[in-house]
Nucleic acid binder design. Structure first.
Length: 359
DNA sequence: GATTCGTGGAC
DNA sequence: TGTCCAAGAAT
């Protein structure tokens, strides 16, 4: 089976291509395990160009792992705000705490120790340890799975085929730097061997790739069909008490955990917007409110559902009585910039700004 | 093993 | 406008 590939020659082509064409990325300027780790966490399901400004901002404020361990989670989330998948940030914070307390601040170099860290799976453990220490672990991300499924002409990415692909990359790693091989394959995947466009003429693997000979390399692997996502109609209220309004912090365990929001929730069948809003606010924080003017309406798409959120100004009849299961704060509009809010709220803030609220 | 996690780019 | 999907992990 493996004799059909000239492993040594292919590895040489791969490394040569990488030395000439590798992307100049901020996290490739250093082999600090903390920085490589951070980059891999941020890059999870997130494109390079999106990550770069967040990566720089983060390192500017938190240059070392110890700085993260000593930071407050809310301040870290503020840096992360807008990047999505907020558990990545909170897990990374937890992991840095563990490294400081249990490993004297040194990131584990052992695969099985490292993968125990919160937010570290097989991919990130392999990527960090191969890049930092040149350990021979294939980092099977979406790019590499696609490149290899085409190279080996595998229609499906079954567990068996993933193992075959893993073992094949291990053979390459006997002839070249594992870190460079992983990163070379990632660059090929993101720049050349794209999901819907395989530019095979640019690819250092072209001579040996089995999918390019089919004239339809893009049909590997077979794309999966996505389920349609539901939409929810949501109402929220800005409850004013003179120059301040109420915000709630979302529960750790829930969607968007740790971020702040306005009180409100999903509308029920047959309910008017103000009825739903009055009911939700009463349930969430025990306040009885009068619903005043409509501020605006935004749409936002999450991974597995979308919302149509309408927001109203509200006035409480009993501001001093608060019983919430969540942390809450009364803040002035200017303080919004100090706290992390989800993207949907920022769409609302831009409406408020147009109305002269200076948030 | 299938779902649940955000957001924005590309087309 | 809609659709896919990106340097995946946790449950």
């Amino acid at each position: 089976m493996n004799n059909m590939y000239n492993t040594n020659k292919i590895t040489e082509q791969l490394i040569t291509w990488y030395s000439k064409h590798k992307r100049d990325l901020p996290w490739r300027h250093s082999k600090d395990p903390y920085k490589i780790w951070l980059s891999e966490i941020m890059l999870q399901q997130t494109q390079v160009d999106t990550v770069i400004p967040y990566y720089k901002k983060w390192l500017n404020k938190y240059p070392t792992l110890k700085d993260v361990a000593h930071a407050a989670e809310g301040d870290l989330l503020k840096i992360w705000e807008g990047l999505g998948y907020y558990n990545r940030c909170r897990n990374f914070k937890k992991a840095c705490d563990i490294v400081l307390s249990d490993y004297k601040g040194k990131v584990p170099t052992d695969f099985h120790a490292f993968i125990k860290m919160p937010g570290v799976g097989e991919y990130i453990a392999a990527a960090v340890l191969s890049i930092v220490h040149d350990k021979s672990y294939p980092a099977l991300d979406g790019n590499i799975m696609r490149v290899l499924s085409r190279f080996m002409k595998k229609k499906t990415l079954s567990r068996y085929n993933k193992k075959v692909i893993y073992n094949h990359i291990c053979k390459w790693m006997k002839f070249g730097s594992p870190g460079d091989i992983n990163q070379a394959l990632m660059d090929i995947g993101s720049q050349i061997c794209k999901p819907n466009q395989a530019h095979c003429y640019k690819c250092p693997l072209e001579n040996s790739c089995r999918a390019t000979k089919t004239n339809l390399p893009e049909s590997y692997p077979t794309p999966k069909q996505n389920k349609p996502i539901p939409n929810y109609d949501v109402v929220t209220g800005i409850i004013w008490d003179h120059d301040q309004f109420l915000i709630l912090q979302r529960n750790e365990m829930n969607h968007l955990g740790g971020l702040w929001e306005f009180p409100g929730g999903k509308m029920k069948n047959g309910e008017s917007q103000s009825e739903a809003l009055i009911r939700e606010i009463k349930e969430e924080c025990g306040l009885e409110v009068n619903v005043k003017s409509k501020i605006g309406s935004i749409k936002h798409v999450y991974s597995h559902f979308s919302i149509h959120m309408t927001t109203f100004h509200c006035v409480s009849k009993n501001n001093t009585i608060i019983k919430t299961t969540q942390p809450y704060r009364w803040i002035k509009p200017v303080q919004i910039k100090d706290l992390p809010f989800p993207k949907a709220n920022h769409k609302l803030f831009s409406i408020l700004n147009k109305q002269g609220w200076h948030v």
